[in-house]
Design a protein around this nucleic acid. Structure first.
Lengths: 106, 106
DNA sequence: GGCTTTCATGTAGACAGCCTACACAGCCCG
DNA sequence: CGGGCTGTGTAGGCTGTCTACATGAAAGCC
């Protein structure tokens, strides 16, 4: 999968993956890999800055915990993040219809 | 529509739009607008560099003509561009399935 | 006891692609 | 005769993803 195809969609994916349950960064990467059938394998250098960006934007809340001697920063969806996710879903629907329509052979 | 949502997909759209008939830059912008139901309205500063990029990559061939005193540079799909388009279509199919799958509510 | 792998977080800098803003020019319409 | 449409193009900026690097503790293996 091309690197920059994700541009502008990664945020949606992250928000979607923490929707049902809060997860820490490493687990988010794994969850995305599983949910995409192995297509997505995001490097840590991509996901951690993205998480910070989303928290700064008010879409995620984070809290530290320690499991088995390892520190985890767990992120969960804020109310603002929840509505942002809904908006992103709508945008994705439009976007994918537009691209499929232009490409033809949808 | 978000600006950078197109990232990495614009090339596919351009190739698709000149597939059936050669078009010049300005007409490509209009064709994309029509085909997308008005969702896409790409600025010239986006499309012209993209066309040059695609020609340099060997996916488009261009030729100059003059219509009503105005010079037009018409682009048409090369054989390499045709197979690139096919590959892009396949990639789009995978990509859109992955995103839809992760977002849920597919 | 040492070595590698896995888990876990994070920063720095490079790169690419789309954007805004600008520039030029001829035609047409009011 | 001014503004809008057609038509092509460049310069510079922004931003998000990437690669590469840095740190550290636990677990498993030989």
């Amino acid at each position: 999968m091309k690197a920059d195809a994700l541009r502008g969609h990664l945020d949606s994916l992250i928000l979607a993956v923490v929707e049902k349950q809060p997860l820490h960064g490493y687990a988010i990467i794994e969850a995305l890999s599983v949910r995409s059938g192995g297509e997505l394998d995001l490097p840590t250098g991509t996901i951690y800055p993205a998480l910070r960006r989303l928290e700064k934007a008010g879409y995620l809340d984070s809290s530290w915990s320690e499991v088995g001697g390892r520190k985890r920063r767990t992120y969960e969806l804020s109310p603002a993040g929840r509505s942002a996710l809904a908006a992103h879903r709508q945008e994705w629907r439009t976007f994918s219809q537009v691209v499929s329509g232009v490409l033809g052979e949808a």
